[in-house]
Structures are given as structure tokens and as C-alpha cells.
Design a binder for these strands. Structure first.
Length: 644
RNA sequence: GCCGAUGUAACUCAGUUGGUAGAGUAGCGGUUUUGUAAACCGCCUGUCGGGGGUUCGAGUCCCUUCAUCGGCUCCA
């Protein structure tokens, strides 16, 4: 007798050992048709793996991420089988499922693969899938596993096997392909109906740049052709929201090969947009007791030797600038913290002065690797909305909460609901990597965790992701095509106060070391604007958007009145353009719609006579007539709704 | 930095097996004076990313370099 507990708490009894597939079948035929894998107790299993004792079972279909994962993992095997048949001698690394699809890292040896081969592989995969190959799990001994891959000459698999415990090794066989794999897998390949191999890329073996580079093929599969088509359409749609495309269309920023790669140039509309974001944050920071400071774009090399950054990053930075004085060297500043430490240090500080909060929109320069540059999200010169808080250890948590509040305020105002808050802590197995006392680290880590809990935040904890100088809390947001970028960051630092010998005098007249918090709610202006553009698909909130309205005279006869409307709105601080081309109104509307200008103000004979404008909302249509004052007031009230 | 791909007018793109570049949009000029998503006619635009080579001849082939794109690594 085997008792199976289902997620709803119900218990089913079976006379003999059963598989999850049997369980599914006993519930309904439809479920049996759709089920892909199952969680048996705490492990995800193949559907036909036999359950011999009482267990809890959760069945996964295409609607579960676990079900998709199994589907894609098996698809990776299918691709490997197809490739092994088409390119005999290929050696295989690892081939996992990922968030959207799967990949396999392979060493093609003397063969080289181009994108033209992908279609051939896709066809082969579908051909193999249609033969309904079973994926058969087999437990093997380590010796047997080693023998198999030694014979095959696959050093990558051998390396993986050597790290595994004997008795925990399994193979999966499907058709002609045998792979070292923990599983789970689909029972067979018949459900894989649509295949798209998306790209070829290089990837270092085991993520180590000193080891060989393998060829990685990314792909995705679906149980229905239609779902694949929908997915591809979605990808195309996402590309339209790419900030690099929008930034060009909306004239926010540009790059110039002559200025240099990774050095963004902010165009007038972009500069004004950035200015508005800065004012928005400055205002909030003032409420929270921040003081603005301004520091130079360069600093003496000695400054960065004191901070330790020169030793750690000097080689990979823009190289020091020489002066006419022999031996004197300056660096473009790669961060603002050392400068701010000097501000702290320039006079004695009392415990009563703390916390001190120095803020600066500080432009920094980092020589990012050439292959890393990416639109506005990864650049070589960028402006951090930086601030450094210096506080007493007992003030740390409160200050941390204050920063969280600012970040959450910004995210809420700008509609970033879909973010991940990631807490990065030490790697407990590698404690010597970190600077600062164990006691301080523990204090800081628990301060972060408690602060996020008090704010009721959902967080993800990443062990070993902390910076060497302190734990941190990062806010990650996805871009149009799902890549994750770090925006806001809050980091505790025990290192710099030490290196700069920062002190304050306590109430007992003793000297103490302040704690430092680095924080940047936007992260950088560049990256923030990039993500903002992608999230809004270029339809920025009214308070931020470069052009809020455009006046469209019906014909040249009304140009004078149109100019008057623009002037009046300008006085009411509505950002307004004029389209006085000799074009028909339909054309002017079309162009304004395509430029995503939120309000179109059409003026002709009627409007001029009555001192009104006909308002049309972008993407929505005619809103009727208003007086100019009414419209200005309307804009003001709309903006008030957006920021409060 | 590494693997792979791409680079043609301001923008989006076409350019056959090598025979000294083309479309649409934008821009400019003219006609039209327009009522809620594209009026008509005409004109202009290029070191075919840069450099080198092969060839009688290169946008097309080869080498090199720069930039961009997709990943990897990195990210103070």
C-alpha cells in the first residue's frame, strides 16, 4: 500500500508502488496528457520513476515553471542528440534549462557551426522528436560512468563525473544519445512540437575565462507551434521597446565613434529629462537631511591608493593622467566615495554631528571591457546619484531604512512594480575575503535584513555576493528582453572609514569609527533612464516627458493664434511644441502620434474665435475643447497625480 | 578581454556569379490652405565604417583595425 498526498491535502491510496504518471492517470485522463514532471516529496522526478513508499506528490504541467523546466531540459538533450548525429565527435559540456528555453555548451572540435546550421539542427530535432523517443533514466556506478565517457573521449563529462559521489550518478538515454544527467526529464519527446534555435554564443567552460571557450546554442521549444509563434512576436515587440532604439527616436542620447565608445552624449531633450529626475531626487533627499556637495572629476592617484581602489582596479582603469610635474599623477574618478571621505575628514566630528549625509550627482569613469558596453546600461562614463552616509553603529539600521524609503518612493512614483530586492551577504566558507570585524559584519547583515523586514519587503538573499567591504541591498529591474540590471543599491562599508582613518568623538570623549553607507537609488542616471524608457515603451510620465503637448494649426491662417497658445502654455510651464508645416492636419496628427507626444492641441477657426484648443490624447483620440487656462490646469493636475 | 554576427544616404533597408550605388521616410523648393493617423510635383543626399591587399576592375573576395549587436567573463 502506498499513500500519496496531493497538494490540496487529499490522500490517495494505491495497492502497489506507483509512478507520478499513474497518479495523474488516476485523477484524470486530461491531466495525464498534460503532466510533464512531478515533485515527489522534495525532489522533482521523472513521471515514470516508481514511488515505493508513502509520499507527497505535486504534478507539474506546462503552466508551472517546473513543468516548463523539465520540458526544456529534455529539449536540450534532444538538441544534443540531433547535433551528435549531424556533427559526430562533438563533445558536450552542460545543457540546462533556463528561464526561457535552454542551452547546451559544446565543443565542436574541428567543425565550426554557423547560424545557417541552426535550421538544419531544428529540423533534425523535430524529426527525432516525432519518433517519440523515450528518455530512460539509468543509475550507474562512477566506474561505469567514467568508462563510458572515456571511451567516448569526452573530457568535459569526465570532469563533471569526477566531482560526483559514487552512487549518485545517473544517465539518461534517448535514442542514440546518452548523457550524464541528474534529470528529471519528460517520459518521451512526443510533446516537443515546435523548436527554435535562437543564437550561437561563446561561453567559457565552467564560466572560467582561463578555460576553453565552448560553443553555446540557445533554443526554445513549445508543445504547440502557435505558442512558438506568439513567443517570437513577443520578442519582436520587446525589441521595439529597446532603449537604444527609443533613445535614438526620441532624441534622448547618442554615441559618437569620434568621442569614444561607451561615452554617452545627452541630447537637449535627454539632458532636460535627466535634470528633472535630478531635481525630483534632490527634493526628496533634502527632506531626508542630505547635503549636496560637489567634487572634482579627477583626483590624485594617492587618493585612490589610500582608498585601495588603485591597487584593486588601477590596472583595468583609464590610466593616470600625467602633469608637467615629474611623478605627479591624477586619475579620472571611478567613484565618488574617496572624495566624500575627505569631506568627512576635513574637520573633527562629534557623535552629535552624525549622521552626515553627503550627496552628489557625481560623474565617474570606468574602463569597462569593450565587449561589455551596452547602450546606456553599461557605459564608461556615467553619473551616479550618489550619497555617502556616515553614522554611528547604533544609527545604521535607521539610516538604512531611510534609504530604503527613498528607493521605494522613487520606484512607486515611476511605476517600477516588478523589481527584485536582493540582499548580498558574505560567503561563510570564505571569510578571509572580507574586511572588517566579524562582529561588525553580523551587525550590518542583521541591520539590512531587519530593515527590509520592517518595510515589509520581499527579498532574495544571495550568499557570497557581498562586496569585500560590506553587505548590500540591490534593487534589480528587468529590461525589455528580460535581462536583469541593478538599479538602486545600498551598501554598508567598513573598509573606507578604516582606510581614511575617519573618526568621531563619542560622548565619553573617546575616538570611534563611523560606519559608512554608499547608496544610489537610481544607480546611475544612464541606466535608470534606459530602464525607464523600456518600461514605459517611450511613453514617459507627463512630468518627465520632454514634450508634453504640440499645437497643430489646421492651416497657416491660424499660425499666429497657434504661436499665442504656445507662448501662454510656456508661461504656465507646459512644455509645448508647434507644428507649423504646410501639411494637412491628418499628417500632423499622425506624426505627433508617432512621436508619442501626450497631447495634441488642434487649433483652427472655431478655436481662435473662442480662445480654445481642441485636445487630443496620444493613443486615445479627441477629448473635446478646453480653454488654454483649463488645459494648463489640467496638465498641472495630471502631474500632481503622478508625483506627490 | 573572449566566441560569433553585422556595418551601404539623417533614419529603415535593397544591391544578383566582382563590371565605379538604389528605394521609402526625413530634408529642401513649388502647388495646395487643409478639421482628428500619410495631399501632389520636383530636387538634393553617399570617401558603401577606416586602412591595406588580390584584380583590368571591389559595396561584393582576402587581411587588418574600429564600432555595433547576441552571449561569456567582469562590474569599485
Amino acid at each position: 500500500m502506498v499513500r500519496i498526498t496531493l497538494p490540496d491535502g487529499s490522500v490517495r491510496e494505491y495497492e502497489n508502488a506507483v509512478s507520478s504518471m499513474d497518479v495523474a492517470r488516476s485523477i484524470s485522463e486530461g491531466l495525464a496528457r498534460n503532466v510533464l514532471s512531478a515533485k515527489v516529496n522534495d525532489e522533482i522526478w521523472d513521471l515514470n520513476r516508481i514511488i515505493t513508499s508513502d509520499a507527497s506528490v505535486k504534478l507539474f504541467t506546462w503552466d508551472n515553471t517546473e513543468g516548463k523546466a523539465t520540458f526544456w531540459h529534455s529539449s536540450a538533450h534532444l538538441m544534443a542528440e540531433a547535433i551528435e548525429q549531424l556533427f559526430p565527435g562533438t563533445k558536450f559540456g552542460i545543457g540546462p534549462d533556463i528561464e526561457n528555453g535552454f542551452y547546451y555548451d559544446m565543443d565542436f572540435g574541428a567543425n565550426s557551426i554557423t547560424e545557417a546550421d541552426l535550421e538544419t539542427i531544428e529540423k533534425k530535432m523535430l524529426e527525432l522528436a516525432r519518433t517519440d523517443q523515450s528518455l530512460i533514466r539509468r543509475e550507474v556506478s562512477k566506474a561505469e560512468a567514467i568508462e563510458h565517457f572515456t571511451k567516448k573521449g569526452d573530457q568535459y563529462k569526465l570532469e563533471l563525473i569526477n566531482e560526483l559521489e559514487d552512487g549518485s550518478i545517473s544517465f539518461y538515454e534517448s535514442g542514440t544519445f546518452t548523457d550524464l544527467c541528474r534529470g528529471p526529464h519528460l517520459p518521451d519527446t512526443s510533446k516537443i512540437k515546435a523548436v527554435k534555435l535562437l543564437s550561437i554564443a561563446g561561453a567559457y567552460w565552467r564560466g572560467d575565462e582561463k578555460r576553453p571557450m565552448m560553443t553555446r546554442i540557445y533554443g526554445i521549444t513549445f508543445p504547440k507551434q502557435k505558442e512558438l509563434e506568439e513567443y517570437l512576436v513577443k520578442l519582436e515587440e520587446a525589441k521595439k521597446r529597446d532603449h537604444r532604439k527609443l533613445g535614438k527616436e526620441l532624441e534622448i542620447f547618442m554615441f559618437s565613434q569620434r568621442v569614444g565608445s561607451g561615452l554617452p552624449i545627452w541630447l537637449p531633450k535627454g539632458a532636460a529629462l535627466r535634470e528633472r529626475l535630478e531635481q525630483f531626487l534632490k527634493k526628496k533627499q533634502k527632506e531626508y537631511g542630505y547635503q549636496q556637495v560637489i567634487t572634482p572629476h579627477i583626483g590624485n592617484v594617492e587618493l585612490y591608493k589610500t582608498s585601495g581602489h588603485f591597487q584593486k582596479y588601477g590596472k583595468d582603469s583609464f590610466q593616470p593622467i600625467k602633469t608637467p610635474i615629474e611623478g605627479e599623477e591624477f586619475m579620472l574618478k571611478p567613484m565618488n566615495c574617496p572624495h566624500h571621505c575627505e569631506i568627512y575628514a576635513h574637520k573633527p566630528r562629534s557623535y552629535k554631528d552624525l549622521p552626515l549625509r553627503f550627496a552628489e550627482f557625481g560623474t565617474v569613469y570606468r574602463y569597462e571591457q569593450s565587449g561589455e558596453l551596452h547602450g546606456l546600461t553599461r557605459v564608461r562614463s556615467f553619473t551616479q546619484d550618489d550619497a555617502h552616509l556616515f553614522c554611528r553603529p547604533d544609527q545604521l539600521k535607521k539610516e538604512f531604512i531611510g534609504v530604503i524609503e527613498i528607493v521605494l518612493y522613487i520606484f512607486k512614483t515611476l511605476g517600477f512594480n516588478d523589481y527584485t530586492a536582493q540582499i548580498s551577504l558574505r560567503d561563510p566558507n570564505n571569510k578571509e575575503k572580507y574586511i572588517g570585524s566579524v562582529e561588525n559584519w553580523e551587525k550590518a547583515e542583521s541591520a539590512i535584513i531587519e530593515a527590509t523586514q520592517e518595510k515589509g519587503m520581499e527579498t532574495v538573499i544571495e550568499i557570497g555576493e557581498a562586496a569585500f567591504y560590506g553587505p548590500k541591498l540591490d534593487f534589480m529591474v528587468r529590461d525589455a528582453i528580460g535581462r536583469k540590471w541593478q538599479l538602486g543599491t545600498i551598501q554598508v562599508d567598513y573598509n573606507l572609514p578604516e582606510r581614511f582613518d575617519l573618526e568621531y568623538i563619542g560622548s565619553d570623549n573617546q575616538r570611534y569609527r563611523p560606519v559608512m553607507i554608499h547608496r544610489a537609488p537610481f544607480g546611475s542616471m544612464e541606466r535608470f533612464v534606459a530602464v525607464l524608457l523600456e518600461h514605459s515603451a517611450g511613453k514617459l510620465p507627463l512630468w518627465l516627458i520632454p514634450d508634453q503637448a504640440i499645437v497643430l494649426p489646421i492651416s497657416e491662417k491660424y499660425e499666429e493664434y497657434a504661436k499665442k497658445v504656445v507662448d501662454l502654455l510656456d508661461q504656465s510651464e507646459v512644455r509645448c511644441l508647434l507644428d507649423n508645416r504646410s501639411e494637412k492636419i491628418g499628417k500632423k496628427i499622425r506624426d505627433a502620434e508617432l512621436k508619442r507626444i501626450p497631447y495634441m492641441l488642434i487649433v483652427g477657426e472655431k478655436e481662435e474665435e473662442q480662445g480654445m484648443v481642441s485636445v487630443r490624447r496620444q493613443g486615445e483620440g479627441d477629448l473635446g475643447q478646453q480653454t488654454i487656462d483649463q488645459f494648463a490646469e489640467f496638465i498641472r493636475s495630471e502631474i500632481k497625480k503622478e508625483i506627490n
